[in-house]
Each structure stands twice: as structure tokens, then as C-alpha cells.
Design a protein around this nucleic acid. Structure first.
Lengths: 193, 193
DNA sequence: ACTTAGCTACCTACTAGTAGGTTTCTCACA
DNA sequence: TGTGAGAAACCTACTAGTAGGTAGCTAAGT
């Protein structure tokens, strides 16, 4: 997420631009015209790569899901304790906020559900399912290695944590204040000391 | 919220219609045309009541904030324990979901921050501040009357709880599944048995 | 007489999308 | 090596509809 390398092709550039736009302005708040201007091609050219805005959105959300899946895999490869993995996840969601200027794509899209194609909604469900499963493994690990305190049911911990992360993002985004993200997460993080 | 009584005037009908629209479709996802059709007046007539969409949104968000403030006051008047007040709050947010078809206005608007007038954002901040203060009093009460377990810092509990409520709404809205709301809240509710 | 609350008509700007064309590149074939 | 066909990736021009908003009018109520 947010790689510094420039994309090598127009299609990737369009996906990057669309993701930034969607995460800060929402699905209904950006247009093909915005992407055309940002990427430097004519609006009609976008339809060559993505026939419809819905198709673009499906590709965007799928790419995002695979990116987060990869990020979770990297966390697993890097950290061995439940505590460190949880902290890394909180960091991923913090970074996605970009100082309060944007949201996780899943959060942004979820709020615009009424405007989304069913295939985008299906991608969101897959994303959520993947995140819930992974977060549950983090709590299972934290419970067994003792690095996260007071873990009851990892599945319910995962449900609560994903909601907490997304809600904390909304708070920080609404007021463009990262301190709100930190405060919302602080009790959860206290369980990792 | 969601009173059955029909509004007595067009302005109130417009606010009701706009709120329903904004909560299910987001700020950028509904239009004056939608409201005109719903209320049964011409689009241009809306401008008589609300000169701009921004003005309509400020009025909407202010009305919502006052409504929630009143709802919290009613909870205080009805319940004496921290536990019952917390449960009532969770119920208010559950009702706002309308079976997964809509969101709390604050959640919906927060996701569209980029499109909002600064006066709407100011109303959102007031709303959040009011909710955080009130929820903190609920945890203070729950801590002192022993009806909520493991209360550490009421202020941080409030920050976590508001985020959890909003995130749980997003989950339920994304998949139109109220069970997701219940699951996300279940560990918190366990602390009230 | 003034105000309110609606109306029609119209404005500019924007939206997603379509149609048909041009340019450049690649590959197969003679 | 040159040529031609086809594909890819862009272009201009356009469509139909929608967006928020304005101007001026009318009728009813106070």
C-alpha cells in the first residue's frame, strides 16, 4: 500500500489513482474525469482498460484485498508473537489513514454500499472474511504465547478488533486527527504490554 | 430517530427524507431530485427551504446531534445503572442500522468528509464530542455501581466504544447482516453480565 | 401590502458511457 | 528485409442524463 515506485503501465496508474480517490472521497465522490486528469490520459481512454466504473471498482477492491492479504503474510513472516503481529496490524491501519486524509478502501466502500456493484460487495465480503480469519489467528497466538492479555474467544476478539480499527479510522478521518485513532486503540494496545 | 408520526411541514419532511437518503446512500449518493420526488415537491422548491445542499446538510447533522443528545438524556432518565445505559446505547446504534440498510448519520457523513462543508464537519465534531462525554459518564457510572466489569479509564473506554459502535455498523451495513453488529459488540456486552 | 411556499423555465457544469478514428507496435509471411 | 494485418492504447467528438443552483412568477395566507 502506497509503494513509492511509479507504476510501469497506465492500467496500474489508473488503479493507483482510483484507490487514492476512493479512499479520500468515496465511491460517489470521484469520477473518470478525475482519474484522467491525474493519470494524464483522456477520459474515454479509461474505458479501454476498465469498461465501466463498476469493473474498475471490482479490480480496485480485489487488488486491495490481495495487498492486505500479502501484508498480513509479511507480518506473519516478520513477527513471531501475537503481540507484535497485533501492533503491526494497528500500524497498517494507521498508515492507511495517511494522517487523517483517507480511509482503508474497505471502510470507504462500505459506507457507499448502495452505489456499489454486487461484485464489489462480494470482494468486500471476501476482504472482511480474510481479515477476520487472520486477526483471529493473531489472538490465538497471543493467547497461547501469553503476549496478549485477557483473550477470551479469538473469533469474537477478531470481530471486535476489525470493527474497532475501522471505527477508529472514521474518527480520525472525520476530524483529521490521528490522536483520535491512537486513543480509540489505546485500551486494546494496553493488553499487549 | 425514525419517528412514525408524519412531519407537519415540508421542511421537516425534507430533513427526514434527506437523512434517510444520506444514511443509506451517503452524501454524494443522493440528490435534491431524490428528495423532491420523495417529498412530492419540485426540485427548485427545496432551495426555498435550504439554499444549498451544504445548508441542508448542516441542518440535518445538527438535528441529528440534538436528537441523539435527547436520546441519551432519555436513557439517563430511564435507566439508573451503567450497564442498562450501555445496553440502551448499543440498542440505539442497532436501531439506526435499520436491519443493515443504513448507517448512523455521523458514520455516513464521516466517510464523505471530503465533500462536506466545514460547518457540517463542525457539527460532526460536536456530535462526537457530545457522544464521547456521555459514554464516558456511562462507564464512570458502570465502574462505580459495579455493573460494567473491568473499567479502566472511562474516557478511553468511551473512545474505544464509540469507534467500536461505528465500526460494527460498517460491518453490518457492508454485508447487510445484523449478526455482524452483534458479534462485534459481544465481548463488550459480556462485561455487563 | 407583504410574506411564504410553491411553480416553470432555465442555467452551467458534470456524469458515465459510446462511436469511430489514429498512431504505434508486433508478428507472420513472402 | 520489407510488407501487411491485427492488436493495443490512445484520441476527438458526442450522447443522454444528472447535478446543484438561479430567476422570476403566481397564489394563498396573514
Amino acid at each position: 500500500m502506497g509503494a513509492l515506485a511509479m507504476p510501469t503501465d497506465t492500467k496500474t496508474a489508473l488503479l493507483d489513482s482510483a484507490e487514492r480517490a476512493a479512499r479520500s472521497q468515496g465511491f460517489d465522490g470521484f469520477s473518470y474525469a478525475d482519474l484522467a486528469e491525474d493519470v494524464g490520459i483522456r477520459k474515454a481512454s479509461i474505458h479501454h482498460h476498465f469498461a465501466t466504473k463498476a469493473a474498475l471498482s471490482v479490480a480496485m477492491m480485489q487488488r486491495y484485498r490481495l495487498g492486505l492479504e500479502s501484508a498480513c503474510q509479511q507480518i506473519d513472516d516478520t513477527y513471531t508473537s501475537g503481540r507484535d503481529r497485533l501492533l503491526a496490524l494497528v500500524g497498517v491501519y494507521r498508515d492507511a489513514l495517511r494522517g487523517g486524509k483517507s480511509l482503508c478502501l474497505c471502510v470507504s466502500f462500505s459506507a457507499s454500499r448502495a452505489s456499489l456493484h454486487r461484485d464489489v460487495i462480494a470482494e468486500i465480503k471476501l476482504f472482511r472474511l480474510m481479515m477476520l480469519k487472520w486477526i483471529a489467528t493473531v489472538f490465538e497466538l497471543g493467547k497461547s504465547d501469553g503476549t496478549i492479555r485477557a483473550v477470551s474467544d479469538p473469533e469474537r476478539e477478531a470481530a471486535a478488533t476489525l470493527s474497532l480499527l475501522e471505527g477508529a479510522q472514521l474518527a480520525a478521518r472525520a476530524e483529521e486527527d490521528m490522536a483520535l485513532y491512537e486513543k480509540a486503540l489505546s485500551l486494546l494496545l494496553d493488553r499487549t504490554h
